[in-house]
Design a protein around this nucleic acid. Structure first.
Lengths: 340, 340
DNA sequence: GTGAAAGCGCTAACAT
DNA sequence: ATGTTAGCGCTTTCAC
């Protein structure tokens, strides 16, 4: 790297007794090299341990084979899982991800984006890049002609390439499961409703209720953020309202866990007194107490698909926006039962 | 980026009526520019929205202001937290992180490292890059003269720059707390003992026991991996041994959660029947049931310190290895009590 | 099928 | 304090 001497294409060319361009052609898998020369050069490359210098390539070809990865919060389980799929897909195509967390710091200039644009990433993957500021940046990038795909969050009414989960369907699935168990009074703790995922899950909840001729009651709904603590606080708020719910749909597993803590604190048992269903199926859900019934999202697949789309946009100079929605899956464990 | 036209240093120079180098000097904060010219050029840069092209700079200066970030598992809470601190520190110094997960895939060539070295990252931060293969790569990088710092894991007996936590102290702290509560028969579920962190925590446990004239009994110790499931399985194994323990030290919070699930399954209550203490203080610990008493690690600070050290090594061409150890903190919640 | 020439946007070393 | 000259390692024309 910075400190060690490197073998250049030049040296390979000399060793092979050909010109630099021929070696370049081999590296880039061009067709116009004789099979014999190609093989000979390949051997030499391997023997000498030559690695093309990505920086120089980037300068000459205006392609960096580097993707930007923007998020708000690395500790978000959603992000962690999605990125696992994304990274693998990227590597398979010879791309790397450059990290650009914003930490949702609205005040200063989008420094993280600047760092990315200065490095001329070929495209940017937004993973749950949620706050108002960030959506603005996202849109600006797109307008500047940078290929962009977003997942887990997208500003409304914009023609963007989006990979996500069918959240309306997921919300419906969760609610219908509770309904099927016999619950009639189902409360909900939502994520922030400026997130389309939260709104969509709510929409699914309403659809399921209305499909069963139950009219949704705002008193049964509490808006929260996405963290454990918010679920805890949300449940306390719900309890204080003294609304007679027998089940709760928490819009993610962390909310569910927080809610359970509040329930226990209030002397209520799960699921004997109150049933609760989560969303996501994060690793801790299975080992929660009780094990959490939840709606699983295929997060890795989302990361893979998003990256695949992004690379496709880059390599084919595609500009049309696509929307990919994955299906959710109901995972039944022990946090729900029939109402008393 | 790849598709939009960019303003070059050339255009800025023309606009300012100076040479390219003068602009370059301003960009790089060199001293030999008159204050007046500097200001004028700065204004023009801002007005034109000029962004220096990092790739071209890298080619010319042999510095990329890019760091590699290698890990096994993005979903590991330790990684998520450390990287939050690391990223922020990097951004403050104008550096970006390039992702290089290995997924601990021992079979193929270290493709992830190749992607990093081809891009000539200035240095590499290894975060819990644990498996045997990875340590080999780590060592090779160091031998090649690439600045490397490692955190959360380091191969034994190597002169490396390491940032970590005082795990012997942490293990002692956990065990002494249980001892102080009156427990005499304390079991332990360890992480993989080829990890120095697991060995060190175990060492602390032994020290604490021996300090209280209790001789450690191998029958009370189970080796596991780091996941929820492993804690669950580990506890089942412990239970089957019918060893009369009254408390357990789980070497991380996920192990603790898994162990609690197994305990509940066996009809044992926490902490009434068995006390359990974890390690890490991940977000779910507080909202676990019961809330988990644990040993907190300052993960963000670790990420910051590791990055700061790495940048220092890069910029000062330092080669001497440093070891930084952070202190842990006992977080008392409700999963431990006096023995029955 | 292969090679020569030019240049990507910047910094470094040396002038002045 | 500012400009001139090279060149970083590669790809891209365009010759042959």
């Amino acid at each position: 790297m910075a400190h060690s001497k490197h073998i250049t294409i030049q040296e390979v060319a000399e060793e092979a007794g050909v010109s630099i361009q021929t070696v370049s052609r081999v590296i880039n898998n061009r067709s116009d090299v004789s099979e014999e020369t190609r093989q000979r050069i390949r051997d030499i490359i391997n023997r000498m341990g030559y690695q093309p210098f990505a920086i120089a390539r980037g300068l000459a070809s205006n392609r960096t084979y580097t993707l930007g990865l923007v998020t708000v919060d690395f500790a978000d389980p959603w992000f962690s899982q999605v990125v696992t799929g994304a990274e693998q897909e990227a590597h398979e195509h010879g791309y790397c991800f450059m990290l650009g967390s914003s930490a949702c710091n609205p005040e200063d200039e989008p420094k993280f984006l600047r760092l990315l644009t200065e490095r001329h990433v070929d495209g940017i993957l937004f993973v749950r890049a949620s706050c108002a500021e960030e959506s603005r940046h996202l849109l600006r990038m797109k307008e500047m002609g940078v290929p962009v795909v977003t997942t887990g969050f997208h500003p409304r009414g914009w023609d963007l390439t989006v990979v996500d989960v069918d959240n309306v369907g997921g919300g419906r699935k969760a609610t219908e499961y509770l309904l099927g168990l016999g619950h009639q009074r189902i409360a909900m703790i939502t994520g922030p409703l400026d997130w389309n995922s939260a709104r969509d899950r709510k929409e699914g909840y309403i659809q399921a209720l209305e499909g069963n001729r139950i009219s949704p009651d705002p008193a049964f709904i509490v808006e929260a953020s996405w963290l454990h603590k918010d679920g805890y606080l949300g449940m306390k708020a719900l309890l204080e309202r003294k609304v007679p719910f027998t089940a709760v749909f928490a819009q993610n597993d962390r909310l569910a866990r927080g809610a359970i803590s509040a329930l226990h604190e209030a002397g209520l048992r799960v699921p004997e007194d109150i049933s609760i269903i989560g969303y996501d199926d994060i690793p801790e859900a299975e080992f929660s107490d009780p094990p959490l019934t939840t709606i699983r999202q295929p997060m890795r697949a989302i990361g893979e698909a998003a990256t695949r789309l992004l690379i496709q946009m880059i390599e084919n100079r595609e500009t049309t926006s696509t929307q990919v929605l994955f299906d959710t899956e109901l995972i039944v464990r022990s946090s729900c039962t029939h109402p008393a």
